[in-house]
Design a binder for these strands. Structure first.
Length: 894
DNA sequence: GAGATCACG
DNA sequence: ACGTACGTGATCTCT
């Protein structure tokens, strides 16, 4: 038999790559540098050698025979860096995806497997190359076995090659004698003790002269340097043991089939997906499958013809289910039909894509033969009937095309979010991959950074693909997504909470909230004046000007120039965080000024100036409520974030005075009282806590009374404050360290608080332990309404990650249930405002709070609705309570 | 683009 | 022994 075999020492090359390449991480947080480097080396070798066969060998984690001998001799091995260890399974997964044969065997190191396979294959007449970073393998070199050692240099990867003759040339000994040299000199990295006092030079000299350790020992008397003679004599047993350690096994009992190792196409779809997942962008070019063989793509059609468009809609109506995507034009048309009517704002559309079978996928262009309005009318008519409509982003669709809320619409992103809330986004290509097994180009692949409307002119083919996929994928994946929701018990959550919420949020976003731009400007100017004064004083105190906003420069001034005692350090230098500075502020007035400066600077940049940029022409701010972001089921608010408007400090709180209801209206604001603790009482079934809530007791005071063994009436303010922190801690997934940090007490004290808490509320301990246990078993946690949060961390071997997972397992059901409940309340409040024909509108949600802009004559009804719907959103063993306020601005209403 | 900081629940 | 509270988003600096 002839041919060429490449063998790779898996761990060794992975290790080389890990240390040779700076840390890389993908957006999931996986470390990927070693895998990346490994692949680069592998591809280089394969390009050069064009082998017929390829095999990668790995060590098995269990201690091997050779290690055991060493362990007995001297301690244990250095553990592998965690970032590297994580990449071993990834690497194996990648190789498997590429169809590469992997060999590993319990009790044997990769060396032994490589040696055995290499020698066997050589006998069969193959040319063998062994790729390793480890010079130990040089002992395997022969005329037909080449050892290849890659070196990662700045100029790229260079490879040193050794056939038997090259070993002799470089080391003056044959490959087999290389073992003896190594055994004499020892190698701490490889755990070979060697003979004390014998280094590389002496070892090589001895073996060149005598050929082997044994023969050298037989000729002890002739050995020249006296020291060497003595050392070898005294440590001969050590030398023999070292030799055994250094010798690679070439008769390991493994089953190896050359046929299986035949090198096929590495660039498979699976490997492509993995490279995408690991974000090896420049490696994707090696794949020949950029043009996917997706049959549907051939039916993507650009349509302008009026008759054709009308026929497509007729056909779509019969299909019963369509996917679609509207392409909003840039800008809004304000059309005034007559002098007596209010001008109507209409978002223009350029066109829309529609998909309703594997063959019927079209982009319908508006503007030439068919007007935007006609097109919208068609789709409105279609979706007003019995046709089911699936889209990638329903909230976005509703902005262009208001549609009545009902269950015939399907939001693919929201469904995908429920199935895995940990991802950053839910682009169509991910849904295609996960729920239809399709590999398709992403928006960026097709359009780059260009907007769809611009791309339509610049690269029409790419645009057509993009817009058609945006309709085809939700159509294609709907059934699978619904099936998965059903399988995971989340169908009801989707149908009754999340989908209706899309409409609620859409209306809230469209409504926006009025902000007094001039008042905001004045507020900003006031801040600016105060900032200028502080800035001057700080420069005087520091004796120089510097950038106060730069933690680096600030740290230098405080802790080096002024030699203040530093509390904490961050990765990059001294910490100048508020809690550190607060301790210094007692002694140094300069630090107080810096804290004050920070506060003002934050208010000005993020709130005064920041919010001003978002006031639109209607005088209102339209935040974006994101429904597919948080891991727990909460909403998030962006551009701008209206869920973190200051309230805790008076100066910041003032900014709420610029949030106003529209003329003649008032704000009604309602927030749940301690919703998370009430949920905890319910879910744990703790009688004490339930009873306390039923009697409307002061919970923190009661906790203080329990934890500090103090009669209820005698609880001090401090005790109550501390108990409140304990209650918070319980909800967060308590840890003594976290609590001690928060209360500035010792870890031991914090631990005692926690223990006494759990003694008082045993059911709560039981419940939290149960949460962790169940999450460990299932791999996810669940809320009262069935929302899941996957917890990959909880089974981590890393203590810190595992502990993190455990805290999440305790917190996620509570925080998530609270999120479920307020979402239910929002839908109900929103619905009632509309159904009762009220003018009042829901504007904002801040996790446990709803803000309504109410017509003055509706205030009582609005309060009644809030009361009924918020309290009635869930049926718990304790009542849900709310606090409601009204006011002429947000400051007053809170 | 990451890290530090700080605003909220 | 390990190093921390749970969940977010915006701004600024600096590489």
């Amino acid at each position: 038999m002839d041919g060429k075999l490449v063998l790779v020492d898996g761990h060794s090359i992975l290790n080389r790559a890990f240390f040779g390449i700076p840390d890389l991480t993908n957006s999931e947080g996986l470390h990927t540098n070693a895998v990346y480097g490994f692949l680069n080396i592998l591809f280089k070798i394969l390009d050069e050698e064009q082998p017929d066969y390829l095999t990668v060998a790995f060590d098995v984690h269990a201690p091997t025979f050779r290690h055991k001998m060493y362990d007995a001799y001297k301690g244990t091995r250095k553990p592998m860096a965690d970032e590297l260890r994580q990449q071993v399974p990834l690497m194996k997964e990648m190789l498997t995806a590429m169809g590469v044969t992997i060999v590993e065997k319990e009790g044997y190191e990769a060396d032994d497997l490589l040696g055995t396979i290499a020698k066997q294959s050589e006998e069969q007449g193959l040319e063998v190359s062994i790729v390793s970073g480890d010079r130990d393998l040089l002992q395997l070199a022969s005329d037909h076995i080449k050892i290849r050692i890659p070196k990662t240099k700045r100029t790229g990867t260079e490879i040193e090659d050794y056939l038997a003759k090259d070993v002799v040339e470089k080391y003056q000994v044959t490959p087999l004698q290389f073992i003896d040299v190594k055994a004499l000199m020892g190698d701490s990295a490889d755990n070979i003790p060697g003979v004390p006092g014998i280094g590389e030079k002496t070892a090589t000299a001895l073996i060149t002269a005598y050929g082997s350790i044994e023969n050298a020992h037989d000729h002890l008397e002739e050995i020249k340097p006296n020291r060497a003679k003595q050392n070898l004599s005294e440590h001969y047993d050590m030398a023999q043991m070292s030799k055994e350690l250094a010798t690679i096994e070439i008769h390991a009992p493994i089953e190896y089939s050359l046929e299986d190792a035949k090198l096929g196409n590495l660039f498979t779809e699976e490997a492509y997906l993995m490279c995408k997942r690991l974000e090896f962008k420049n490696m994707l070019s090696r794949f020949d499958i950029d043009a996917p063989k997706n049959l549907a793509e051939e039916h993507f059609t650009f349509v302008t013809d009026k008759k054709q468009i009308s026929d497509i809609f007729k056909k779509a109506k019969k299909a019963g289910h369509i996917g679609c995507c509207l392409l909003p034009g840039e800008g809004i048309i304000t059309e005034q039909l007559s002098l007596f009517e209010q001008p109507k704002e209409q978002q223009v559309i350029e066109g829309m894509s529609i998909a309703f079978s594997e063959e019927d996928i079209y982009y319908l262009s508006a503007g030439t033969e068919v007007s935007a309005e006609e097109l919208l009318e068609e789709i409105r008519e279609l979706s007003g009937g019995q046709t089911k409509v699936s889209v990638m982003d329903l909230k976005e669709t509703l902005k262009t095309l208001p549609l009545p809320g009902n269950d015939r619409y399907f939001d693919a992103s929201v469904a995908a979010y429920l199935l895995n809330p940990l991802k950053n986004d839910y682009p169509y290509e991910d849904l295609a991959k996960d729920y239809a097994g399709l590999m398709i180009p992403s928006r960026t692949d097709l359009l780059g950074k260009e907007s769809p409307v611009k791309a339509k002119q610049a690269k029409p083919e790419a645009f057509l693909k993009y817009i058609c996929y945006m309709a085809y994928i939700p159509w294609k994946t709907r059934d699978r997504l619904l099936e998965e929701l059903n399988n995971t018990g989340m169908q009801t959550l989707y149908d009754t909470i999340e989908l209706p919420l899309v409409y609620t949020l859409s209306d809230m976003e469209k409504e926006g909230v009025h902000v007094d731009a001039e008042e905001l400007k004045r507020y900003g100017e006031e801040l600016a004046a105060q900032i200028a004064v502080l800035e001057k004083e700080i420069y005087e105190g520091a004796g120089e000007t510097f950038n106060i906003n730069s933690p680096k420069q600030l740290g230098h001034i405080l802790f080096e120039k002024l030699e203040m005692p530093y509390g904490k350090k961050t990765k990059t230098g001294y910490s100048t965080a508020a809690d550190v500075l607060e301790k210094l502020a007692v002694e140094y007035p300069l630090v107080s000024k810096i804290l004050e400066y920070r506060q003002l600077a934050k208010l000005k940049s993020t709130y005064a100036d920041g919010l001003a940029n978002f006031i639109e022409e209607d005088g209102r701010i339209h935040t974006n409520f994101q429904q597919t972001v948080t891991a727990t089921g909460r909403l998030s608010s962006t551009d701008p974030n209206l869920q973190n408007i200051p309230i805790r400090m008076e100066l910041g709180r003032m900014i709420r005075k610029v949030f106003l209801p529209k003329d003649g209206y008032v704000f009604v604001d309602a927030d749940y009282s301690q919703i998370e603790l009430r949920i905890l009482a319910h879910m744990s079934g703790d009688e004490m806590l339930i009873q306390a809530y039923r009697e409307a007791q002061d919970i923190h005071r009661m906790t203080a009374s329990q934890v500090f063994h103090t009669p209820f009436e005698e609880v001090t303010d401090l005790q109550r404050r501390n108990a409140k922190a304990v209650n918070f801690g319980i909800v967060y997934g308590i840890s003594s360290f976290g609590l001690s940090q928060d209360l500035s007490i010792s870890k031991k004290e914090a631990q005692e608080y926690i223990e006494r808490y759990f003694e008082s509320y045993p059911k709560i301990k039981e419940f939290l332990d149960g949460c962790v246990e169940k999450a460990k078993k299932d791999g996810y946690s669940v809320t009262m309404f069935g929302r899941r949060r996957p917890l990959p961390e909880i089974s981590s071997s890393n203590f810190m990650q595992r502990s993190f997972g455990e805290r999440i397992a305790m917190n996620a059901p509570i925080q998530g249930t609270a999120a479920d409940i307020i979402k239910i309340a929002m839908n109900r409040v929103h619905r009632r405002l509309i159904d009762e024909g009220l003018k009042s509108r829901l504007l904002l949600q801040v996790h446990d709070e709803l803000l309504i802009e109410a017509a003055p004559d509706e205030v009582d009804e609005v309060k009644k609705i809030l009361d009924e719907e918020m309290k009635g959103a869930a049926d718990l063993s304790v009542e849900l309570e709310i606090d409601t306020h009204t006011g002429k601005n947000w400051y007053e209403a809170k």
